[in-house]
Simulated assay, not measured.
Amino acid sequence: MPDPRIKNEAQYEALVKKGYSKEKSARIANTPNAGEKGGKAKPYEEWTKEELYEQAKKVGVQGRSYMNKKSLIKSLRTN
């Protein structure tokens, strides 16, 4: 039975199968643009530090306030 708290159930299940924790999978699957594709986003290197910080905040990156731009990019790509 699908969980009504999960916005993108298919993405959630895929992330759990991939080895992500249930909490992290739910956080990613519940982001406003969860599972949307289209290739319209510019590469992280072209984002401002403030934009990277806000994205890191959305996905729950720990310690983001202490990170420089390079660290934010690395964290966003590995989280």
Rank of each mutant, 00 (worst) to 15 (best):
K40D: 04
G39C: 05
T78Y: 07
A26R: 11
T31S: 14
K49T: 09
E50L: 06
P32F: 07
D3Y: 01
Q62E: 15
K69S: 04
N68C: 05
A56C: 09
A10F: 08
L76F: 05
E51M: 05
A14R: 12
E50F: 05
W47I: 00
E54P: 02
S21I: 00
V61H: 05
A41M: 14
K42D: 05
A41S: 14
I28N: 02
K24T: 11
Y20F: 15
G39K: 08
E50K: 13
R77T: 00
K18H: 13
Y53R: 12
E36M: 11
K69N: 06
E13N: 14
K42P: 10
D3V: 02
N30T: 03
T48R: 08
K58R: 14
Y44C: 04
K18L: 15
S25F: 02
N8Y: 00
K37A: 04
A26D: 07
T31C: 10
G39D: 05
S21T: 14
Y44Q: 02
I28G: 03
K70Q: 14
N33D: 13
K74D: 04
E54N: 15
E45D: 14
A41T: 06
S71I: 01
I28D: 04
I28E: 06
S65V: 08
G35Q: 04
T31I: 11
W47V: 00
N68M: 04
P43R: 03
K70S: 12
L52T: 00
A29N: 04
L52A: 02
L15A: 12
P43S: 00
K58Y: 03
T48M: 06
G39S: 06
E54I: 02
A10D: 13
G19R: 06
G19S: 11
Y66M: 14
E46P: 11
S65M: 13
E36W: 03
N79M: 03
R77K: 15
S71Y: 01
N33S: 13
E23F: 02
K18C: 12
K18N: 13
D3R: 07
T48W: 07
A10N: 07
I73H: 02
Y53F: 13
N68H: 06
S65F: 12
Q62H: 12
N30R: 07
Y53Q: 11
R77Y: 08
R77I: 01
K49F: 02
K49D: 04
S25V: 01
K17H: 12
K58C: 06
G35E: 03
Q62D: 14
D3W: 00
R5N: 14
N30W: 01
I73N: 02
E54G: 09
L15Y: 09
M67E: 08
G39R: 05
V59T: 10
Y12R: 10
K22L: 10
I6H: 07
P32L: 09
K49S: 09
Y12S: 06
